[in-house]
Structures are given as structure tokens and as C-alpha cells.
């Protein structure tokens, strides 16, 4: 299943956030969206997943998701959004309980996604007992459990320290390599973008418009920390954004 954004514009009152965004998200690829603070990255992601409705333009699903897909558009949030009163397994079962699944199915799915995210030993732990990186792995496991057609990742690693971020990036790449999924990956971190993205969409500052789409051909599993060609691309992206980031930084917040 592909996603097509055609001519999306959105504003909050008089404040224009996004202008005329058209973009294709091909299946099996990771599309990174980068841009300066307040350029509407997260708004765009909420529009794609139907948590908000655009003022103009539309988000289209092209084709039908696979039969076993329970929730085609599935988010991974920056702040994890785990229920603190449910265990790791309980948090995953939460999103399966509303579907017509047998107890055995639910149990199998939970143990499968826990194994894929290396969380099997922590099934009964409560979120408060887990580190930030582990919490995000639980959230990723929960997203995988509903077999999404497209994962919508809203700064998934931004709340984590840089070492944990490295580890989780490796995990995500390993997950993708084993079983490619489509994803829209919003981040402000250019290092993450060049490591995770098949294509990188650079948005301009408010109103957010597509400035450039950069394609990276190098396979995800061959990219690693400090690759010189990736750093070159990262530098290019930074030059694109630098001035706007500076302007965004020195601007009064308009909310």
C-alpha cells in the first residue's frame, strides 16, 4: 500500500503551517521528513495518520493493505505513550483486544513481536521499570503487533540519549532488513535521517513547503556511524537548513 499526499495545506487559525505538500510514500521504503523547529513536521504526520484533517488537499491510500493488517497507519510517538498501569505484554495486548482475535492469536502475536524487539524477558515488567530505550522498543513492538502498512514515527528517538539512539537505530535497521516496512520518519536529527531514510524530504520554515527531496541509494544495513559519504550528505542537508534553523531559533513562538 502506498500513500499519496496531494496538495496539502493546513493552518491553525491565521497561522499557516503547511503549504501545498505533495508527496508519494512508496511501500517498503522509509521516508524521512526533516526541517527546522516549527515547520509543521509533526502536523504533517498527524495529517497522514488521520489524527487531524487538512484544510486543503487530501491524503490517499493507494491499494489495499495486506489481509492480516489490523491498523494500516500506526504511530510510534516521541514520548512512547505507554499505559503506565499495564505491563509490557499488557500494553501490546491493549491494541489487539479490540480486534476479532482469539486469545491464542493475541498471545502468539505478543510473543512474536517481543522476540523481534528482544523484549521477551521483560513481558511482565511495568513501564516505570524500563529505561527510555526499552520503553521505545515496547512502543515499536506494539506498533509491529498490528501489522501496519505504514509506520508513522514522530521523532521516535528524540527523547533518548545518544548512545541509546545509536543502539535503537541499529535495531530499527535490523527490523527493516529482516522484513521491510514502509515508514514516514519525522526527525530533527540529520544523522538519524541519513541513517534511516531511503529518501529525505526537507521542509522549509513556516509555512512548511517541500524544499528538496534527497534520495540515498546506499542500503540501510551498509550505513553505519560516521560513514564519510553519509556525513557528506548530512552536511549538504545542514547547509540547506542552516539559515532557516537560525531564523526559527530567533523567532517568537507563535502559538
Amino acid at each position: 500500500m502506498d500513500i499519496r499526499l496531494s496538495g496539502i495545506s493546513h493552518s491553525y487559525g491565521d497561522f499557516e503551517v503547511l503549504r501545498n505538500i505533495s508527496l508519494d510514500i512508496p511501500s517498503g521504503k522509509i521516508v524521512c521528513i526533516v526541517g527546522p523547529t516549527g515547520c509543521g513536521k509533526s502536523t504533517l504526520l498527524r495529517l497522514i495518520g488521520g489524527l487531524e484533517a487538512p484544510n486543503k488537499g487530501s491524503v490517499l491510500q493507494l491499494g489495499v493493505p495486506a489481509d492480516d493488517c489490523l491498523n494500516p497507519l500506526t504511530y510510534v510517538f516521541q514520548d512512547f505513550a505507554l499505559l503506565p498501569w499495564r505491563s509490557v505484554a499488557g500494553n501490546i495486548s491493549l491494541v489487539l483486544e479490540d480486534h476479532d482475535l482469539s486469545r491464542a492469536d493475541i498471545k502468539n502475536t505478543i510473543s512474536d513481536v517481543l522476540a523481534r524487539t528482544k523484549l521477551t524477558d521483560f513481558a511482565r515488567a511495568l513501564p516505570k521499570q524500563l529505561s527510555g530505550g526499552m520503553k521505545q522498543r515496547v512502543a515499536i513492538a506494539r506498533a509491529l503487533a498490528v501489522k501496519p502498512a505504514v509506520m508513522l514515527m514522530d521523532e521516535p528517538l528524540s527523547a533518548l540519549d545518544s548512545q541509546t539512539r545509536e543502539l535503537l537505530m541499529d535495531d530499527l535497521v535490523a527490523l527493516w532488513t529482516r522484513q521491510p516496512f514502509s515508514a514516514v520518519y519525522v526527525t530533527h536529527n540529520l544523522d538519524e535521517a541519513v541513517r534511516m531514510g531511503h529518501s529525505i524530504v526537507v521542509l522549509s520554515r513556516c509555512p512548511g513547503e517541500i524544499r528538496e527531496v534527497v534520495h540515498l541509494e546506499k542500503p540501510l544495513d551498509e550505513r553505519s556511524y560516521g560513514d564519510s559519504d553519509l556525513q557528506f550528505r548530512q552536511k549538504y542537508l545542514w547547509n540547506l537548513m542552516r539559515e532557516e534553523a537560525q531564523a526559527a531559533d530567533s523567532e517568537l513562538i507563535n502559538v
Binding site: 489524527l51 504511530y75 505513550a81 499505559l83 491493549l94 491494541v95 483486544e97 506494539r142
Partner: peptide, 25 residues
């Protein structure tokens, strides 16, 4: 609210969101 958004984004029913997210919260 982020937990409620999460429930909605996973397509949970209104009843489930109330019973499993709002009441315990």
C-alpha cells in the same frame, strides 16, 4: 491526552478508550 491520541491512532473503540485508558488514568 497523548495516551488518548495513542488509543485513537490504534483504532481502539470509544468504549475501550474510556474503560482501558481514561478510567484507570
Amino acid at each position: 491526552r497523548t495516551l488518548i491520541r495513542m488509543g485513537q491512532s490504534f483504532g481502539m473503540s470509544w468504549k475501550s478508550i474510556v474503560r482501558k485508558i481514561i478510567l484507570p488514568g
